[in-house]
Structure formats: C-alpha cells, structure tokens
Design a protein around this nucleic acid. Structure first.
Length: 392
DNA sequence: TCTGGGGTCCTTTTCCTT
DNA sequence: TCTGAAGGAAAAGGACCC
C-alpha cells in the first residue's frame, strides 16, 4: 500500500481579502501604542482605519504575510517594510497577532489529529499527515479525506487551507502549492515528469536561494534539468551528501518518515534594535536589553519545562554580518542570572568596537530536570571563577 | 537600499584527550 | 619527553524553513 502524506497550509486573515494589507514582522513601539489606546480590545476588534499605512511607517521590519490584493503590487513575505512602502504606500500595516495565531494553530491541529492521528507538526501553519492507516484514506487517491479535513478546519477556525496528497512528503509539499489558497491536489507517481519537472528547482523544499544560484550557474533551472544530471555530476560541486539528495529530490524520491514526537534542541530570543547601538556609547541600553533577553529565554525554558547547558550569544553588526559564540558548562540551568553570567562570558570573545543591529541569547543542550536526577553532571568547561563584570 | 524572529540541521574548524 | 595520528566534543558559521 502506498503511503499518503498531506501538507496543509493555513492561509491567514482570509476575512480581510480584497484589502491591500500586510502583516509586519515583530512588534514595534507603534503597535504597543495602538494597543494601549484600545486597551483591552483584541486586535481583530480595532477598526482598520486606526492602523497605520505603510507610507506612514518608518522603521525596521519585514512582511510576514500579505493579502492577495497587496501582492498585486509586488509586495510579499520577507520583503523589507521600507521597500514595500514604495511599492504599495497605502497598504494597511497590521501587527502580528501571536495569540490568535497560536489559538488557530492549536485548533486546526486538533481537527486533523481527530481524523488522522499520525501527524508531523511543522510549525504554526503546516503539518504532514500519514493517510495510510486512516479508514477511507485511499478513497479517490486521498481526495475524500483531504476534503473532510478542509471542511473540519474551516468549521473550527474559519480558515481555508490547501492540501497536497502524494506518495511522500517531498511531493506532497509541492502538490500543496498547486491549488492555493483553498484547493486539493493529488499527485500520482507518474505525474512527476508532467507536473514537477517543468517547475523551477527553487520549488523543492530544501533548495534555497544559495543552492538555486549555484544550480543556475551550472545552467540548471528546472527540476527536470536537475533530474537529467547524473548523480556524479552533482556530487562534484555539492559534495556527496547534498549532491545525492539533490538528485533524489529531482526524481521525487523521499523515504523520510514522519516525525510525530520531537523535543526542542534550543530555545532563543533575539531582537533587532530600532537603530544601531554602540557597545560603548549605548552601554546602558544594551545592558538592559541583554538582561531582558536572558530573562525571556529563562522564562521560555521554564514554561516548556527544560534546562540547558550550552549558553550562546548572537550579534549582528551594522553591516549585517553575524557572529555567534557559545559556552558549554557542567550544570544545566534555566536561571536568568546564570544565563546572563555565562552569556556575558561569551560577549568577551567578540568585537565590541562596532555598531550592533541585533543581539540574541540562546540555550541549547536541553534536558528535562527529571532526566538529570539519575545521571551524573555532564562534562563541560567550568566557568572561570571570580569573573562577572558586565560588558554592557 | 533593504534585509524579523525562532527554530533545525549540516559542515568545517578547533581543541582536547588518548 | 616529544611527536603525530585519530577520534570526539564543542564551537562557529551557514543554509534553510515557517
């Protein structure tokens, strides 16, 4: 029996379709002022007229998502807000409503689990589902079950979604793009040459801008052209592992199983400043931000029930170059002051003479506190005793 | 000119131990 | 005691995803 997978993607804010509207990444000071002015109201209850237009907004950020009306002006996900403002100055700029997104995310996953319990969670708005063992999962090649799921999600959340059904995850993901925003596409194994090969390589989940650029420089633009390359010809420029993967992907082959249970690898918080800050001249401001990031990471760890022993920092300089430093210690922790202390040690190993645009704090090597009770402390570097002078 | 935030995974380099 | 090889863990960077 074939395995069937479906990739479901929620289309956010469909109730606002028709309006040129974008959702901005991150929470800005203006958003907080707006929310304060409408104290107690959920975002959805604030009149649209009260939100700023892109042309009135001057600041850093990117677009998280945009309605189709806004996309007609050439704005779309991941575009800088400044650039978007030039393309579509009258678009309305909404802040991200994290609470609402989390609520919808939980609701739509609950609907799916009820119908098809073997599910891989891929973020707030995407999942893979194994149809194989679901009664009736094979009817009309999976279309019947997909329709049932679509309907259930709409009833629970008022949101539409697109679903792709295919013999594996790689193809299901691509199929889900075929009939956006509210469609179902069923891909059979012999559809590969007709429907997949004409697509640009970038459509393969895992081929990003860098790999695409290198493929283009080799004269490879479509998935079909990639498939026509002997595997050996790809191993040369891309290495054994990546080259083989590219070849397999072009032929629609993917035997990766669904990951139904996973534990987090790391927890982090980072923030881009409204203006670049200098470690010396803006020391007080940076110090407060640094402490707050550590407190947030500690709170996130506690909320999730984890402790970690690799503490790291991330800096982005004014020229957008990033560096990271981390330190693994013996004792796991979720304590904000301890994280702050170890992250402070990491700070001593980076160049602090240049303007910074971003600062982040990360904790990895996670474990549950009850897992540690029975195991001896792991090896790691002991923090130097006696240090603690804050750099910011 | 512009480029968020929170993640995962992979590769390469570095450092330490045997 | 010195040296080199080998292997593992940690560190750092980069690509990618939603």
């Amino acid at each position: 029996m074939d395995a069937f997978f479906a990739s479901v993607e929620l289309l956010r804010y469909p109730q606002l379709k028709g309006l040129p509207l974008v959702i901005g990444g991150g929470r800005r000071r203006e958003d907080d002022q707006l929310l304060t002015a409408h104290a107690g109201l959920p975002l959805s209850a604030i009149p649209l007229a009260d939100f700023p237009r892109l042309k009135d907004y001057a600041g850093r950020g990117v677009i998280t998502t945009a309605t189709y009306a806004a996309r007609q002006f050439g704005v779309g996900s991941a575009m800088g807000l400044m650039k978007a403002a030039r393309q579509c100055p009258d678009a309305i700029l909404l802040p991200v409503d994290f609470d609402e997104i989390r609520r919808c995310s939980r609701a739509f996953k609950a609907v799916i689990r009820e119908i098809a319990p073997v599910m891989e969670d891929c973020g707030v708005d995407e999942v893979y589902i194994d149809f194989t063992e679901v009664p009736g999962g094979q009817r009309e090649g999976g279309r019947v079950l997909a329709r049932l799921i679509q309907q259930g999600i709409f009833e629970a959340t008022g949101l539409t979604c697109s679903i792709g059904v295919a013999p594996n995850q790689l193809l299901a993901k691509m199929a889900s793009e075929f009939n956006k925003p509210n469609g179902i596409a069923v891909l059979q194994p012999d559809d590969l040459q007709r429907l997949i090969w004409p697509l640009p390589c970038r459509k393969i989940n895992g081929i990003g801008p860098k790999t695409d650029e290198r493929l283009q420089s080799l004269g490879i633009r479509t998935i079909g052209e990639l498939a026509a390359q002997p595997c050996q010809a790809l191993i040369g420029p891309f290495g054994r592992s990546h080259g083989r993967w590219l070849h397999e992907a072009a032929w629609g082959r993917d035997d990766s199983p669904l990951v139904t249970h996973s534990k987090p690898v790391s927890v982090s918080r980072e923030t881009t400043f409204e203006r670049d800050l200098h470690p010396r001249h803006d020391r007080a401001e940076l110090g407060a931000l640094f402490t707050r990031l550590c407190e947030q990471v500690a709170a996130d760890l506690s909320a999730k029930g984890y402790v970690g022993r690799t503490i790291g920092i991330k800096l982005r300089y004014g020229d957008f170059k990033s560096v990271t430093r981390d330190l693994t210690v013996e004792q796991h922790t979720a304590d904000a002051r301890e994280i702050r202390r170890i992250a402070g040690q990491c700070l001593k190993r980076v160049d602090l003479t240049r303007q910074l645009r971003l600062l982040g704090v990360r904790v990895g090597h996670l474990a549950r506190p009850d897992e540690l009770a029975s195991t001896p402390p792991a090896a790691g570097k002991q923090p130097t005793p006696g240090e603690s002078l804050p750099l910011f």
